[in-house]
């Protein structure tokens, strides 16, 4: 499936990646645990009270998060490290981060500028990031797609989508 000739640089990147993942999990677990204790101190720790499950979940996440960290450092899981290295080698990170940023911008402009323009622009941008260079085709698809979705959802299904800038036109 994937090339097995992975060099040491890639391997160390995989190793680093798994460690960052472990750190993120532990950080998340800490946040959960912190809030869980706050909930429990207000509502009680007992099994009938709202704090019981949050505390269990927080402890579970923390425990297994630390176990995972151990498996990436002191007692490494070599299969995982190799797989992570392969995945890292196959991932074009700049594309990933660009798309994520694009998604967030898309979410924020959806309401102010409206569904159709926001979606058409988002579609074009992501297709370009994904490597498409056929502008004419992409513009046609993006516009048709967003217009069709907008009318299908608002007129047929009765779902409200933001009209935004189009409000003046429609």
């Amino acid at each position: 499936m994937i090339d097995s000739n992975i060099d040491s640089a890639q391997l160390s990147r995989g190793k680093l990646g798994t460690r960052i993942a472990a750190a993120v999990i532990i950080l998340g677990a800490a946040v959960v645990l912190f809030d869980a204790f706050r909930i429990a101190s207000e509502g009680g720790f007992g099994p009938q009270q709202p704090g019981f499950f949050p505390v269990i979940v927080g402890i579970g996440l923390m425990g297994f998060g630390i176990a995972f960290l151990v498996r990436t450092t002191l007692k490494p899981d070599y299969d995982l490290r190799e797989q992570a290295a392969e995945e890292h080698a196959d991932t074009h990170w700049r594309t990933l981060w660009t798309v994520i940023v694009g998604l967030v911008i898309y979410a924020y402009v959806l309401e102010p500028i409206g569904y159709i323009p926001a979606t058409a622009i988002f579609f074009l941008a992501i297709a370009w990031v994904g490597g498409s260079r056929k502008w004419i085709r992409d513009i046609i698809v993006a516009v048709l797609f967003s217009v069709a979705v907008y009318f299908f959802f608002t007129e047929v299904l009765g779902v409200r989508l933001p009209a935004g800038l189009m409000e003046m036109v429609l």
């Binding site: 048709l144 797609f145 217009v147 069709a148 979705v149 907008y150 009318f151 299908f152 608002t154 007129e155 047929v156 009765g158 429609l170």
Partner: peptide, 26 residues
């Protein structure tokens, strides 16, 4: 009521992708 008129085109619900456009204004 509008939905009733649309029931048939819906048979091609996937036409969302190919562009079934929409007439009836707001």
């Amino acid at each position: 009521r509008r939905l009733a008129q649309w029931a048939a085109p819906l048979a091609a619900g996937l036409l969302v992708l190919t562009g079934c456009g929409g007439s009836g204004g707001g």
